[in-house]
Structure formats: structure tokens, C-alpha cells
């Protein structure tokens, strides 16, 4: 287990007229090398939960553990990397190389070690260091900027990468590229990823679990490997499950031995075809 949240609750502006309970009694474990998705509608508490995991917000109640030790109350732990929503708006250096080097410089890394760390981080997100190192940030597309922001976090070699809605605003190509790099980081480098998103479809094939938040509480945990029937979870209408999962759910009502989920539409199609061809399916 990499991280554990125990009975975490959080209220913004407590004891004021604006008091708002953002999270209520969240208990959750994140395993090493997971690709965990936290999904939910607007105001469900997703971003608050991520900021609590990062140590940026101290929860009103409950405790967060990184490994066995409680998460320090100040600053971001060196083993954690946090990529904010719209990270491209937080870029403040002029060139790609300078931006990615900012973190390591502040940790006292310099010279050749710095240059190779920056080059490695850029390569990990698919930006060729030879081509991008001296490129002005203003010339980059949104997707490229977002990958620069990711490289700036990766260069500090986090064990757990926390990302808030990294797919918003990216086009199909940018989204696919970013997901491919995240999957690669997760599989080949063993980085644990927690991603907050309301767009489940593009990450569903790659994730280990989807934690569904609704009004500050965990209303259910689902996953692409799930075979048992999916219950009607509170807030599930706000996230739109992938349509192939919805189809399997519908068909399962007629054929209970069909699995409740599949990673991709292709996989779901093959499962249905095999089932139907074996004579157990419908009329067509």
C-alpha cells in the first residue's frame, strides 16, 4: 500500500455562512503501481480529495498516510508529484528547458546531472529534448504545454503522480498522446497514478479502478475487470460510464452470465459475439 486515507472529511470555510462540506468520511487505499481514476460530477469533492492527498490541504478530520507514516502537514512530500488543472497556465519560464529545470535547480541539482535529468523527463513525455529544450513555451500547443508541465513534475522523480483533470481542453490526438505517456510511466517506470477526471472513456481501458465520488462521499468503486453486476451508484449519471459498459450492463439483465464490464468497446463486442454465437444470445 502506497497511500491510505482514513476517515477523511473536509469542510471549506467552517463556522461561516459559506461553510461547505466538501468531503465526508473518505477511507481509501492506493496500492503501489496503480492507475486509479477518481471520477464524479461537479462539486463532488474530486479536486479537494486530490489536494488532500498531495498535502496541500489539511483535512478537517481524518488522517492521510504515505506508506506507514502520516503525510507531513507542510509542503509537498518529495515522493509526490502534483499536476494542477490547466497546468499550462502555471508555466512561468520562457523556454521548455528552463521550465523543466526549475524544480531540480531548487533541489540543488546542477551541471550535467541537471541537463540529463531534464532531457530524460522531456523524453518520458514524448518531447524530443534536442528539438524542445530551447523552444520558447509560447510557441507550443496546449497539449505540448501540458506535457511540459508533466515533465516538470516527473523530473523530480515522484513515486505517486497526482493529476487534476489533465485531459480537459486537449483534442483527440493530444489526449491519446498524453494517455499513452501516462500508461508508459505507470507500466515501465512503476509510477503510481491518481487521476481526477470526469472523462472516464479515454482512461477506462488503462485504469485499475474508478472511485466514484458523489456529494463528498465514495458512492462506489468500479473497474474494467469487474464481472459482478454494477449496482445503480449514486452520481453515476453524472460521469457517463463508457457506452460499451452501459451496453453490457443492459445485456446482463437478460443474460446474467455476461461480464459487467470490459476494458474496450472492441473487447465488449468480442464477448457479446462469442456469447451470441454460442447460441445463448438473442435472435439476430
Amino acid at each position: 500500500m502506497l497511500m491510505k486515507l482514513e476517515s477523511v472529511s473536509h469542510t471549506y470555510q467552517p463556522r461561516t455562512v459559506f461553510a461547505q462540506a466538501a468531503l465526508r468520511n473518505i477511507t481509501l487505499s492506493i496500492e503501489e503501481n496503480e492507475f486509479l481514476v477518481i471520477a464524479g460530477g461537479e462539486g463532488s469533492g474530486k479536486s479537494t480529495l486530490l489536494l488532500i492527498m498531495a498535502g496541500m490541504i489539511k483535512p478537517s478530520q481524518g488522517q492521510v498516510y504515505l506508506g506507514e507514516a502520516p503525510l507531513p502537514r507542510q509542503g509537498i512530500h518529495p515522493n509526490l508529484g502534483l499536476v494542477f488543472q490547466h497546468p499550462e497556465q502555471q508555466i512561468f519560464e520562457l523556454t521548455v528547458g528552463e521550465e523543466v529545470a526549475f524544480g531540480p535547480i531548487n533541489r540543488g541539482i546542477k551541471g550535467e546531472e541537471l541537463r540529463s535529468a531534464v532531457a530524460e523527463a522531456l523524453a518520458a513525455v514524448g518531447l524530443d529534448p534536442a528539438h524542445y529544450y530551447d523552444r520558447p513555451i509560447r510557441e507550443l500547443s496546449t497539449g505540448e504545454k501540458r506535457r511540459v508541465a508533466l515533465a516538470s513534475t516527473l523530473v523530480l522523480q515522484p513515486q505517486l503522480l497526482l493529476m487534476d483533470e489533465p485531459l480537459v481542453g486537449l483534442d483527440h490526438k493530444g489526449r491519446c498522446q498524453l494517455i499513452d505517456h501516462l500508461v508508459d510511466l505507470n507500466r515501465t517506470r512503476g509510477i503510481t497514478i491518481v487521476m481526477v477526471t470526469h472523462q472516464i472513456r479515454p482512461v477506462y481501458p488503462h485504469c485499475s479502478r474508478v472511485v466514484l465520488l458523489h456529494q463528498g462521499q465514495i458512492s462506489g468503486i468500479i473497474g474494467p475487470e469487474q464481472s459482478s453486476p454494477l449496482e445503480e451508484l449514486d452520481g453515476s449519471e453524472q460521469i457517463a460510464l463508457p457506452i460499451h459498459v452501459q451496453l453490457l450492463q443492459h445485456l446482463q439483465k437478460v443474460k446474467p452470465d455476461l461480464p459487467a464490464s470490459a476494458r474496450t468497446a472492441e473487447e465488449a463486442g468480442a464477448i457479446i459475439a462469442a456469447h451470441w454465437q454460442s447460441g445463448e444470445g438473442g435472435h439476430y
Binding site: 464524479g40 460530477g41 461537479e42 470526469h198 449519471e237
Partner: peptide, 11 residues
Amino acid sequence: DEATSMLDPQG
């Protein structure tokens, strides 16, 4: 202009 990108499907 991409004004619904931050909204959940229901929103």
C-alpha cells in the same frame, strides 16, 4: 468556446 469542457455529462 469549449465552454462545457469543465462540466460533467449531466451539467
